[in-house]
Amino acid sequence: MLTVADVSFAYRDADVLRGVSFHVPRGRIVGILGPNGSGKTTLLRLLSGVARPTRGEVRLDDRPLARLSRAAVARRIAVVPQETHLAFDYTVLEIALMGRYPHLGAFEFEGPEDVAIAERALAATGTLPLAPRSFATLSGGEKQRVVIASALAQFDRRPADVRPPASDVRHPRGVRHPRGLRQTDAGAGQLLLLDEPTASLDVHYQVEVAELLRRLNQSQGLTIVVSTHDLNFAASVCDELVLLRQGQVIASGPTREVLTPATVHALYGVDADVRYHDRAGHITVVPIPREAASGLGS
C-alpha cells in the first residue's frame, strides 16, 4: 500500500534519515520502533506527505505522494499526532467533523451524512457519549481516542455501512466495543498513521489504545502505521516492525522474527529476555539489569 524507497531527509545540515526503505502491506499494522531521537516522527511526517524527502520517494499504491494533491492524500491517509493542544475550545463533535473537511467543497458545510460519519467514528472509538463535551476538559486517553475518531472520519464511507447498536452508544465510558463495526471493508485502502500514541498515557489507556487499533484493523481492514519506543506496545499490536536507529533501518519484517534480544540490544543498548507470553498472546520483552546479566548480582 505504502512504499518507502531509499528515503533520506536532512534538516538544515543534520541528516535525520538515511536510505530508509520498507513496505507497508495493505491491511497490516506496521510499527516503527526506535529510541527517542531515532527519526520516527520525521519518518511519519514523510509518510503523511507533510514533509518531502530530500532524496528518494514515498509511494502510495505506486504513485509518488508528491504528485498527489493535498486533499487526495488526506482522503487516504490520516494522522494522529502524539499530543493535541487546541488553541481554542472546540467540542468533541466539532473535532470529529474536522475530519470531513477534505471531502467538502470550498464553501460547503457538513451535511447530515458527514455528521453521521463523524458520530460513527466517535462510536468506533467509544467516545460518542462525549460528543457535546469541550475537548479541553477530556483526559489524555479520551483526547487521544477523539483525535483517532477525527482521523477515522477523514476516510470516506457510505452512511449505510455500519451503525453501532444503541446499547454501545449509551455505554458511559464507551469501553465496550461497538459490535456493529464488523467485517466491512470500509477502511480498506486507507492508512492511519499514529505518532507515539501511548507516550503520555498510563497503562490502562495504553491497553485501550492497543485494543482499539487492533479492532479497527480487523473490523475495517484499516492499514495502520504506528511509531513507538515502547517494546511491549509494539509487540502487542504490530504485525510487522521497522527498527530505526540513528535514522537508519537496522531490521524489518514480521514482529516475531525481528524482535530479538540482539535487535533490542542494538536499539537500546540493554540486555533483554524476549519470550512468548501465553496469556497475553504475544511476545514480551523484559529488560535485564546489567548486574543480573553479567552474573554479578547473584
Binding site: V79, T84, A87, P102, Q154
Partner: peptide
Amino acid sequence: RALNLLALGPDAAATRG
C-alpha cells in the same frame, strides 16, 4: 475552515489537505 484546522496545529492541518 483552514483556521479551525490550524487550531489543531500546523502539521495536523497539513494532513487534512
